[in-house]
Amino acid sequence: MDNEPTQLAAILRTEEVTKIYRSGSVAVHALRGVDFALYPHEIVVLLGESGSGKSTLLNILGGLDRPSSGRIHFRDRDLTSLDDDALTEFRRAHVGFVFQFYNLVPSLTARENVALVTEIADDPMRPEDALDQVGLSGRLDHFPSEMSGGEQQRVSIARAIAKRPQILLCDEPTGALDSKTGVTVLHALVEANRNHGTAIALITHNVGIRRIADRVIHMADGRITHEDRNATRLSPSEVSW
């Protein structure tokens, strides 16, 4: 799939973002002046060693953390100027999250886990429809303990897409999965991008996954070192794991 995201206005954009964590007299520079943009309808993969700043950047993009300096813009809105309540509303209305560990409520069924989000969203899908989109229409009333790791991760993706977010932020969504299950999970993410135009930023240590993206951002020592662009996106089933 050819894509020219630079012809569009960025949906998320950072300007010279830094993040410093302090522990006593020790300062850890997690991000060092990062300029990043995510465009509508695209998939971006973030690659880099542990400690390179990928997760910190993702958390700041999603409003889970604040930068030490710099600006973050959602379209023409400056997120760094928002108070905590407004930032929470931004996350609830516009962002879905998928993490390596599924964060499902063990005492709730798949349907009920998704409903946790749909009950507070403005224009959500039905939980049943979201679960059907990730291939789990036959597992609606199963509890997490009755599902495989891949199925649980697909429930977390259904929960993320059920509120129809404009942005989906994924931190190692296949990190705990075998290759066959990981491909199934990636298919669910790609379908969300294709069917709803959801912009996706995805962290992975698996360099093969970069081939499903429009762009690949390489990070090291809190900085973006370079960017690659794929002329054509591969299907997850074509990726060398």
Rank of each mutant, 00 (worst) to 15 (best):
R77F: 12
L79S: 04
L79D: 02
S81A: 15
L82F: 15
D83T: 09
D83R: 15
D84C: 06
A86D: 14
L87K: 02
L87R: 01
E89Q: 08
F90V: 03
R92C: 05
A93I: 10
A93P: 00
H94L: 02
G96D: 03
V98G: 00
F99M: 15
P106F: 04
T109R: 07
A110D: 07
L116I: 11
V117A: 13
A121V: 05
D123S: 14
D123M: 12
M125G: 07
M125T: 06
M125H: 08
D129I: 03
D129L: 09
A130M: 09
A130R: 02
Q133H: 09
Q133N: 08
V134Y: 10
G138R: 14
R139K: 15
L140T: 14
L140S: 12
D141N: 15
D141Q: 13
D141W: 00
F143A: 10
E146T: 01
E146I: 00
G149M: 12
E151C: 05
V155R: 01
I157S: 01
I157T: 01
A158F: 03
R159G: 00
R159E: 03
I161P: 07
I161F: 02
A162P: 12
A162H: 11
K163S: 11
P165E: 01
L169T: 00
C170M: 13
P173I: 03
P173Q: 14
T174N: 06
G175W: 02
A176R: 11
K180Q: 14
T181Q: 11
G182S: 13
V183L: 08
V183F: 01
T184L: 10
L186A: 05
L186P: 03
H187D: 13
H187F: 04
A188Q: 03
E191K: 12
N193F: 12
R194L: 11
H196V: 01
T198R: 02
T198E: 03
